[in-house]
Every structure is written in C-alpha cells, then in structure tokens.
Design a protein around this nucleic acid. Structure first.
Lengths: 340, 340
DNA sequence: GCGGTAGGGTGAATCGTTTCATAAATACAT
DNA sequence: ATGTATTTATGAAACGATTCACCCTACCGC
C-alpha cells in the first residue's frame, strides 16, 4: 500500500492537518514540527496522491492536447513545443491522437474532461458541421475548462483560436509558381471538413485571378492527411488529359505520396514538374530535390496557444474568444523550375 | 459546478448507491429505476469524475509513456503505435518527452506515479549508472504499477524489457559496407549512457573482426540524438587525416546532421562517401539519394510492449522480468556504393 | 401462518487529500 | 493578574465516487 498522509501524520506524531500544512508550506507550524514532519516525509519517500489532491482542490495540473495525425511532422513539432510550454509551467501533458477519426476525437474530448484537465489545446480534425464536437466542447464550458483551438476553427463557438495564414500562404505559393511561368497548377489541400482546406483554396484562386488564369476545378483536390491520399490524388492529376506542370501540396505526408507517385512514373522534380509544399520539416532540405515550401511559424503558434490558455487558467483573462493568425513564409529551395 | 452523482440521485429520487449501480451496470436494480436514472444521467449530461472514481477503485485507466526525444521519427512511430494499443484497450495515454534530460525524466516518472497511472512504458534516455532512475522505478514497484522498458535496458532491475537487435543490426550494416569494399567506416552511435550505444559498437566491431579489419577508435563516436550531434561528429570524422569512405549513423536525426555536414562540404552520397543508417522513416526513400537503412520492426516492438504491460495490469502474469528482442532488417536503397 | 430466500433499495464508510472552525498555548500590554 | 492578540495545532467536514452490510418486501413451499 502506498504511503498516505495519514502515515506521515501518525509516524511524526502530529495531526493530518499539520502534516498537510508542512506538505504545502502553508500556515503556521513551528520550526520544530516542520522539521520533524519533513524528515518523516523523506524517510518514507512519501508523495501525495495527485488524484486525492486534484479532487479536493479542483486542479489537476494537467493540460490536454488533441491532434489529428501524429505522423505528420507538423503535429510532431506541435507536440514538442506545446509539451515544452506546458512542462515549463509545471503542468503535465496528456496527449490524444485521433487519426482524423471523429469518434476518437469525441472520446478523447470526453476522457480529458472526465479527467478534469485544467485546459485543452485542440487541433480538431474537422467534420465540424455535425456539431458533435461543439456539443462536447460545451461540457468544457460547464466545467470551466478553457479551450484553445489551433490550426482549425470551430464554427458556432467563441473559443480562443489560433490559425495559420492559410489563405496568404497558399496565395504566396501559387503566385510564386505563376511567376515561374506555370499556368496549370495542381492543388492537394486538406479535407473540406476543416477550415484550412477551403481557405487555402481561396488563396490559390486569388492568385489565379490576379494573373487572370482560368480556374479549372479538376486541378483542385482535397484529401486526408495521409501518404495514400497524396498518392491517389497525384495519380489522378497526372492522368488528366492536360496534366499540371506544377503542384501545390497541403501537408508533408501528402507530399510523400506525391513523391511516390512521381517516382513510379519516372517523373522528375523539378524538370518535369514543379513542387511546392505547405509545411516544413527538417527533411525537406535533404529531399531530392530540396523542397521549396511554405513554412508556418510553429513555435509562435504553440507559444501563443500556451499563453492564451494559461491566461485563462490563471484567471488573467476571461473575456470573449481571441483570435490570432500565424504568418507563413516562402522558403525557396530547388523543387520549382521556371518554364517558358 | 459539474453535475455529480449526488445530483443524479436526488434528481431521480433514488439513493446514491442505486445511482452508482446503474452507472456501472451492476447489482440488482429494477428495470423501472434503471430507466429513470439513465434518463436523468442523459438529461443532465452527467459524466462521472475520473478523479473520484480512480481514487476509490485504484485504477485510473491511464498508461504513461516516456520517451527521450520526440523529434526523432522512431519515437514518433512509437508514440503512434503505443497510443493505438492503449486506446484499443480503452486506456488513455499520458506522454512525457524528456529531451534526454535526466531531471525531466525523473520529474515525469514522479508525476506519473503521483497520478497513479496503471502502467508505464519507458524509453529511458540513459545515464542509468547513477541509479536515480532505478530509485524512482522502485516507487512503481511499491505502488504495484507495472513498468515495461523499451529500446533501453536498465541495470539492476528486473523489469520486462524489449530491445532492438542492436548488435546484430550494427553487424549487418557494417558487414554490408565491408562487403562493398569499405575498410574505413565511421560510426555515430547513440550515447554511451544507454545500452544501445555500446551494443551497436559491439556489432560494428564484430564485423570488423570477422573481416580482419583493425579497429580504429578515432572512427567511432557516441553522441546525443540530435541533428547538431550528427553534424559535429561528421565534421570531425571528415577532418581526420585519413577520413572514412563510409559511415554508419545511429539515428535518423543524427543522420540529418551528417547530411548537412556533407552538403556544406560538397561531398556527395554515395559517390564520395557511403551512408547507412539505423532507423527507418518514410522520408528515407525520398532523400537524396534514397537511404540504405537498418529498419527495426517498430510495430512489433510496441505491440509486444503493450502485451507485456497489460498482461501484468490484468494480472495474467506476475513473474519475473521478461526479455524480448526485436529483429532488424537491412533495406538496401542507394546510399551505399561499392569501392575498389 | 411461518421460516427461508431472493430481489431491490438504502445509508454509511471509505479512498487521500485540503480547509476551516476551533481550541490550546503563548505573548504582550495594561 | 487580567484580558486581548497572536501563534500553533487539532479534528471534522468535504471533494465525488464505490462498496458493503443491512433492511424491507414479496414470494414460495410446507
């Protein structure tokens, strides 16, 4: 049986209340006793139960983080950075990976609120129309647990939200391709169920319009954040009677699918087709060829997410939902080639 | 205030005990009451507090996972796979990333036991000589929380342990390089503080001996699991008066450092130097050139880890520490070139 | 009609903390 | 000495669940 505070108390010959006081360094307790109790605590290697404490003080010092797809390097970075922020503040991270599955997302949401996390950072996988996510989120409001949304918006809520500059990023990418002479530009975006997907398409279209290039809907596809998804969409794009000369791919795992498809068909980048990807990863520079990308400032994203969240946890802010947008930047490497 | 079982009871006009019975589908409750209480539960959108329940039944349905460096794709896979196993069994994963920092590892260990996780999967970052990890682990024994070690051993413990076939893998890699004519083979291994580092060096040396190639200690280095570490070590290897014609790199993030170093010096793979890496990742195939690697069977690793752990949690096994070894396989791609 | 049994329900104890009202002891001023 | 603060320590209540001993009511067979 684990050592409890009762053991400490009886072993040190004091009341439970006193033991608790020295544990938490609070209240008036004589040097003498404090010392004695402290000694017993160390001797018995006692550590208070987080469950019992959490139940009583209604704080668990835990933060939930839910992401849609861990294999995506973007989210790995998010995990790393968020964990760092959380850890720095002496909280513990609880991770949920939903594999873009709505049921899993809901189950995570429930479990985390059952566990009484002190805050939640949510990168929802989408399918937000159905309102089931919103419904779960409402328990968080009831429980007074702050929620910060990252990367994805959630309609019909008033939550703190941090998004990437999707429209602008896609615009930059597309414009860069156009300026390099490309007219038929394939696009693989993330699922229509999320806010990011349509926004990026908007940026894409804005660039087209600016250069008076007609929009061909056959060139634009949305898919899951998977290698397979990228692979399949690339195949169909290449199968078009008039295939694109350049592609803008939404996430790096879709990009791997694209690369696989190209490789199979012995289509080389950038000679035969130009490529640009949203998302950066350490591997991009060492790919063949080094990839030109739109890089989001993930550190800022996570740092701000943590700030907004802990502001609310600490009671420093309690107003309506705040909204931040994280810029992106074009990193030119070698996967785009000018054409006539 | 959150809804409690007391609310349910009073609202449904039954005792708390009865409410609890229908919550847990246990005991004798008339259809009538069960229905009534169920209705109230749904109406009030009630969910029992995991804290209170955990405290009482001494089960939290949580599993802790501690890894040394999340940015390493190998561990990303581990997280993904372990989370899957854990989720399938209706448990929740609690993640700790230690960035190879002993203090952080200890702090995770403590927090997780404070939280009364039902089990722990630990990929320790090493520095195990000091015995501080072992000391923390001993609280787990006292609390009766099973622990499974993965990838790293922990001396002076009797824990279930799952390791990679480090020696054999390194041997395969080295032999392959030798068979391709290489005689001076640089090696970047993981830290000496872990079991994996020395084992891989052993495999390396075994191959050398077999082919009667003298061992040059200048060629063998151990470092952290970081890009920088790989970069620095590669620089010194290349600075040798008689630099290696091939390199065997321990992890894929170190490999990125190696690639950066080579790129800076305009040394091309495999023409100028051959490369082989322990660890596989989806990116390896699309690197320039596609990388020949030693691939560990990560899925098996995680599945077995979960099995061993849950065996103990479910009480199906309670004997002494079991020991499993996960095989590796050589995947030949294009980063190794035969030389005269 | 009586004892036994089974089903259905209750209330209190308990898990391991924190907190708060209160009591005891000490200090200080008058 | 007396009375008033102040410090120090205690005990019990509370957090939100589960569990268990027990009670009540039918029902059954004899």
């Amino acid at each position: 049986m684990p050592t409890t505070i009762k053991d400490i108390a009886s072993y040190a010959g004091v009341s439970i209340g006193t033991a608790s006081k020295v544990l938490n360094n609070r209240g008036n307790v004589s040097e003498d006793l404090r010392f004695r109790v402290q000694a017993v605590i160390e001797k018995l290697n006692y550590r208070p139960s987080a469950l019992a404490r959490g139940m009583k003080i209604k704080r668990t010092h835990t933060i939930g983080l839910i992401i849609p797809k861990i294999i995506n390097t973007f989210y790995v970075k998010v995990i790393e950075l968020v964990e760092k922020e959380v850890h720095n503040r002496n909280y513990t991270l609880i991770l949920g990976n939903t594999e873009e599955d709505l049921e899993r997302e809901i189950s995570c949401l429930q479990t985390f609120s059952d566990m009484r996390v002190d805050g939640l950072i949510l990168a929802s996988a989408g399918r937000t129309q159905e309102g089931r996510i919103q419904q779960e989120i409402s328990s968080y409001r009831e429980l007074n647990i702050p929620v910060v949304l990252i990367v994805r918006r959630l309609p019909n809520t008033d939550l703190d939200t941090i998004e990437l500059e999707n429209r602008e990023g896609a615009y930059q990418a597309t414009r860069y391709l156009i300026q390099n002479g490309h007219r038929r530009i394939g696009m693989i975006s993330s699922s229509i169920n999320t806010s990011a997907g349509p926004e990026r398409v908007e940026g894409y279209m804005k660039a087209l319009e600016e250069f008076r290039i007609p929009y061909d809907r056959e060139l634009v596809h949305m898919g899951g954040l998977t290698l397979d998804s990228g692979y399949i969409i690339t195949n169909t794009l290449l199968g078009l009677p008039n295939p694109p000369s350049a592609m803008f791919v939404g996430t790096n795992f879709q990009l791997l699918g694209t690369l696989r498809s190209l490789k199979e068909k012995h289509i080389t980048v950038p000679e035969d087709i130009s490529l640009i990807c949203f998302d950066d990863t350490e591997w991009s520079s060492f790919a063949d060829p080094p990839l030109t990308v739109i890089e989001p400032y993930s550190e800022d994203l996570c740092k701000i997410a943590a700030e907004l969240l802990f502001d609310r946890i600490d009671g420093a802010y309690s107003g309506e939902g705040r909204h931040r947008v994280i810029p992106t930047k074009l990193v030119v490497r070698e996967s785009v080639k000018p054409i006539a």
